[in-house]
Structures are given as C-alpha cells and as structure tokens.
Simulated scan of single mutants.
Amino acid sequence: MAARVTSVFLYVKDVRRSLEFYNEVVGAEVLQVHAEHEGAPYTLAILRLGYFTLMIHPQEPHADEFVDARLGVGIHLQMQVDDVDRFYQHCMDEGAILALSGEPTDQPWGWREFALRDPDGFVWSVYQDKTGGQWTV
C-alpha cells in the first residue's frame, strides 16, 4: 500500500501570528482562514507550501492534551528551497527567529542548511540539496 504525507496539524498559541509567519516569512499560500464570527480569534488557518498543507489550530481548546508538553518540542520539520542562502537572507530581513545552526552550513550528506524556529518553537530544517538529485523525492 502506497502512502504519502500531505499535511501537518500545528497547535499554536496564536493562529494569527503563526499565519503571518508562515505566509510572510516562509511564503506559504493562505488557502482558508476560519473564525467563529467576524472579529473573533482564528480557529483554523490552512496554508499550502508546495504540495504540503499546514493546518494551524489554536492550542487553547486542547489545553488538557498539552499539560505536560511544550509547543514545538518533539517534531522537526524539513523544507527544501532552491537557494538556501537567499532564503536565509530573506528570513533575516523579515526578523525571523533562527534556531540551532545560525547561518547556512554545508553538511556531509550534501545539503546546505540552517534551522528556522517558528513563533511557537517548531523547528524547520531549511535546506538546499547539493547532491545533484540524490535526495529528490
């Protein structure tokens, strides 16, 4: 049976702040935004990043599930870009929070990458594949 991962649900403290981060810094396309009524806090934001969908939900309604957990811990996401140095500079220009690695670094497995932390602590490994297609999916 063939399977393909198509989306991720991220539970966040502030859906609007995460929506702005993923749209303005990462470049994700906003597909849908939901609220219970006009002017109410967002209850869901759906964004597209290439063929991948980000479903951003508020953490508060699920507070019991997060009693012993910290947002962003236990998951590490990866995002491939065409020019990691240019994307890194874009993140710097946007004031994004960089995590772990600092500037893009060449890795022994053929990626040039850096780590980007979103407003809730989810870490993205942003990379450029320099292997000539060995890591192409």
Score class of each variant (00 low, 15 high):
85 D>E: 11
51 Y>K: 12
28 A>I: 00
114 F>N: 01
84 V>F: 08
102 G>I: 03
56 I>V: 11
1 M>T: 09
137 V>L: 13
101 S>G: 10
49 L>G: 03
61 P>R: 11
129 D>L: 08
22 Y>S: 04
136 T>I: 10
40 A>Q: 06
104 P>A: 02
73 V>K: 12
60 E>C: 02
104 P>E: 05
92 M>S: 08
6 T>R: 14
73 V>T: 12
50 G>Y: 06
131 T>S: 06
108 P>F: 14
34 H>R: 13
69 A>S: 09
97 I>T: 15
40 A>W: 05
67 V>P: 00
133 G>C: 01
33 V>S: 11
69 A>N: 06
3 A>W: 10
137 V>M: 12
12 V>I: 01
22 Y>W: 07
5 V>E: 00
1 M>R: 11
49 L>M: 12
43 T>S: 15
42 Y>M: 14
31 L>H: 05
63 A>F: 09
123 V>T: 14
93 D>H: 08
107 Q>D: 00
59 Q>G: 06
4 R>I: 11
137 V>D: 11
73 V>H: 13
115 A>K: 10
108 P>A: 03
49 L>D: 06
25 V>G: 05
125 S>V: 11
67 V>R: 15
122 F>H: 15
48 R>P: 05
6 T>Y: 06
100 L>H: 08
23 N>C: 09
9 F>W: 10
9 F>A: 07
29 E>R: 12
136 T>A: 15
40 A>N: 06
44 L>D: 05
45 A>P: 04
87 F>T: 13
46 I>M: 14
27 G>C: 01
125 S>Q: 14
96 A>I: 01
116 L>D: 03
13 K>R: 15
113 E>H: 00
88 Y>L: 09
127 Y>N: 13
90 H>I: 04
41 P>S: 02
98 L>F: 02
20 E>P: 01
17 R>Q: 12
